[in-house]
Each structure stands twice: as structure tokens, then as C-alpha cells.
């Protein structure tokens, strides 16, 4: 359950940025979580809701964009889709794959309401 510790980091990043911008509250948080990232996106969403209680982000809607997994196939010498780590190349069926995209876990942006905290 490292989602809880990731959620604490999310809310920390969000609150820090919101305070710096003089926000009253945060109403929406957008995360980009790759399909190959080490995290259960729905659990992370739930954990963010729990961790946000009592912060500027309490009640914020948490949206997750899923980046598809991509990998470089050393056999095909081409970039291919990769649904999960451990699955074969969709073209050649081999496993000589190096993940090139889809393992990110990022806070993309937030929507804030300006003004002193309520």
C-alpha cells in the first residue's frame, strides 16, 4: 500500500503550489499515471481523497489520465505498445523490450480558487 505514501506526496506538492499561488482552495487535481507505473491508480485516487482532508485540497476532484505503455523492441527495432510489463512484443512476440513511456507518475496541474483560505 505505497499508494498512501504517494498520496501524501501528491497532496504535499499540490498544497505547496497552491499556497505559493495564494489559493483559497483547490477544486481539482489532475494526475498523469502511466499504465506501467508502480501504482494502482484507483487506490491512489482514493488515498488522495483521504489525505486531502483538512488541507487546501479537501474535496478536490481527483482526475487521473492514463498514459499508455510504450516500449522499444530490440528485435523489431521499433517502438510498440505495451499493455503490461512482462507481456510480449505485439509484433514479434519476443520479450526484448525496454519501456520508453507509460511509467510516469506526475501531478499535471490543479484548479485553484484564489484568495485567503476559507
Amino acid at each position: 500500500m505505497h499508494e498512501l505514501s504517494l498520496a501524501e506526496r501528491v497532496i504535499g506538492i499540490v498544497e505547496g503550489a497552491a499556497r505559493k499561488a495564494g489559493a483559497r482552495r483547490v477544486t481539482r487535481i489532475a494526475l498523469a499515471i502511466g499504465a506501467l507505473a508502480h501504482v494502482e491508480a484507483e487506490t491512489l485516487q482514493y488515498c488522495c481523497e483521504v489525505v486531502s482532508r483538512g488541507t487546501l485540497a479537501e474535496g478536490a476532484r481527483i482526475e487521473v489520465e492514463r498514459t499508455p505503455g510504450r516500449a522499444w523492441c530490440e528485435t523489431c527495432l521499433a517502438e510498440v505498445d505495451l499493455e503490461q510489463v512482462g507481456m510480449p512484443c505485439t509484433t514479434c512476440g519476443g520479450f526484448r523490450l525496454k519501456v520508453t513511456d507509460g511509467d510516469q507518475m506526475r501531478v499535471v496541474d490543479v484548479v485553484i480558487e484564489p484568495g485567503a483560505p476559507a
Binding site: 503550489a17 499561488a21 477544486t27 481539482r28 476532484r61 506526475r106 484548479v111 480558487e113
Partner: peptide
């Protein structure tokens, strides 16, 4: 992401963060 279209958010600002968790 449609928050900027949401009603009642005329004052809302989008704060770009782009930071790894």
C-alpha cells in the same frame, strides 16, 4: 480535463505543476 468549463469556476485558475510524484 474540463474544469475550466465547469460552472461557478469563473475565478478558478489552472496552476500548471508538471512534477513527478
Amino acid at each position: 480535463l474540463d474544469a475550466r468549463h465547469a460552472p461557478g469556476t469563473s475565478e478558478a485558475q489552472i496552476l500548471r505543476i508538471e512534477q513527478d510524484i
